[in-house]
Nucleic acid binder design. Structure first.
Lengths: 99, 99
DNA sequence: CGAATATATTTATATATTTGCATAGTTATT
DNA sequence: AATAACTATGCAAATATATAAATATATTCG
């Protein structure tokens, strides 16, 4: 019962991170960002076939909630996982999904 | 990149499971239900100090999305994890949380 | 500087979630 | 059958989230 030191702030932050992840497109984004991979906004928007602004929006949410980090290099902004272990969440949920 | 066979249905279901978990009270509930523990609605509503009906709502959401299972025994309904590995998600998110 | 490329923000509308209260359904006991 | 204990459901108001379109900001290069 690790998290259940039940400090409300920690629960709140954990919920916010999970809420950030809990979206089909954002799960797909995390799927592409395993193994320390770094991708640009354009690469992601082309991979997912969604609008650039929508992609940026999703990435912004993931970054804001501490799931992703970004690093600008010239015109591009590369996004990548803040904690590698976050891939486990996608793996785990994927295993628990019967599809 | 396990989940990114990117079948939309699977992404959708994964998102729904995560969305179910992504709430402070529901994370706390999962925190109490590690190690195959089974708790009743009343036990949970007393542990969390929230309304009985609110508790039942949260449990219903978790059950509906495939995170929990329930089993009635007399007057009580016991709730417990459907897949033990789901505790990993709470552990993981808890580790990634600086608090 | 001006044009082109890449990314971010804003805005508005539609949709979904949370919560408590009241109520109703279930089961055990007397 | 009546009561008590436990759980579930329907409703409504407040709040939060999603989506797309338009616009704005940054960076590079000629």
């Amino acid at each position: 019962m690790k998290i259940s030191e039940l400090e409300p702030e920690k629960l709140e932050q954990a919920a916010n991170m999970l809420k950030a992840i809990a979206h089909p497109m954002r799960i797909a984004i995390l799927g592409y960002l395993d193994d320390g991979k770094k991708l640009t906004v354009t690469e992601i928007h082309e991979l997912l076939n969604i609008e650039q602004s929508t992609t940026s929006h999703h990435l912004g949410i993931l970054k804001d909630k501490g799931v992703l980090q970004s690093k600008r290099e010239g015109k591009n902004t590369y996004y990548f996982l803040k904690h590698c272990s976050l891939s486990n969440i996608v793996d785990c949920i994927s295993n628990c999904t019967h599809g």
